[in-house]
Design a protein around this nucleic acid. Sequence first.
DNA 1: CCAGTTTGCAACCGATCGGTTCAGAACTTT
DNA 2: AAAGTTCTGAACCGATCGGTTGCAAACTGG
Lengths: 201, 201
Amino acid sequence: MAGGRPRTFDMDDALDRAVEVFWRQGYEGTSISELTAAMGVNKPSLYAVFGTKEELFQQVVQRYAERELAYFREALALPTALEVVCDYLNRNAVALTRPDRPPGCLSIQGGLSASPANNTVTQFLATSRLTGERALAARLTRARTDGDLPADAAPAALARFVMVVSEGQAVHAAAGATAYELQQSAAIALKAFEQALTTAN
Amino acid sequence: MAGGRPRTFDMDDALDRAVEVFWRQGYEGTSISELTAAMGVNKPSLYAVFGTKEELFQQVVQRYAERELAYFREALALPTALEVVCDYLNRNAVALTRPDRPPGCLSIQGGLSASPANNTVTQFLATSRLTGERALAARLTRARTDGDLPADAAPAALARFVMVVSEGQAVHAAAGATAYELQQSAAIALKAFEQALTTAN
DNA sequence: CCAGTTTGCAACCGATCGGTTCAGAACTTT
DNA sequence: AAAGTTCTGAACCGATCGGTTGCAAACTGG
């Protein structure tokens, strides 16, 4: 057994750098040479460690979900439906506009559309967004049995509405909207949600 | 003066075909050879008639706004703020999911993010979206003087909220949501808007 | 110090990118 | 029919794409 030549890069750091590049430029807007430069990894090592561009992208999205979307899972753990949604949309506004991060959301601008050759990337991101929506729907279903959502409320439709607002916030953030502006939109959306707490939907 | 060899393509038809390709694949996901194939225009003619890829894209976006976003301008012409927003969001749901069109919205998935080399495209689209938001804000400001929006309502914030919802609908549509699902979201959003009609915002 | 292992670096691969050049075909006017 | 104009088709341009190969450098265990 032998050690071999040591790496000049840290895998975790390199992946974080890749997250940033894909986040800012999207899948098709990012070239391998830009990635190797930003990650501090030479090309053969990149392929040895992370696989192809598409495989790297999947790891990037996973890392992004773990490190940058923690607030979503934390929001889901709050006691009532209203708290969940209020917390999520407001923290979303902040997360989408962090000055030390690219504006917007990787899960959307990473590849909302693409060449037919890269269709799997678009579908992969759509699926990962849908997973979040389903988690929220499940949380709202529980809220209905908990009693903080009316029995005749529609958790799937409400969850979809919340995700629609959150995606709209992301598009606006990518265009340069401020956290305050996005929170204003969140506040208006929450009025609709509050109404669902008392009325049939 | 002479006529020269006649073209084998129609400029208007060719531009419509280009709209469809950019709409489905985005700016960076579309190659010149895909465009020439879809438009029925050979490469030298494409450059002679439409200019560079970026110049063609600008004409494509303009054509898209003229032909595919007419319902937005029609909605703005309705008598009251509530009618304007209700009509817009519901017709948006239909327009984003037409079976004879690519799902989603060209103004968003055409280039939400891009390589630094194509940054102008992203900014161009963001500006064109902002133009729509400002038109809606102006319409809501008029509604305030008309009296169908409270004096203490915030037209800019309300317009931003409506555009956030509309952009979220577009992202959802790109992922395969149905018109019905998007109209459910529109209905929930409208409850928030209705509340703004009676209460301070 | 040497054998074995793993990395870094650079050159290379075919394919495609956006964009141009050029000869000849197809038209109109005289 | 000849001259003039405009378009088509294909070949071509340098650059870059994602991905690979080969070799020397840098480490470990014996």
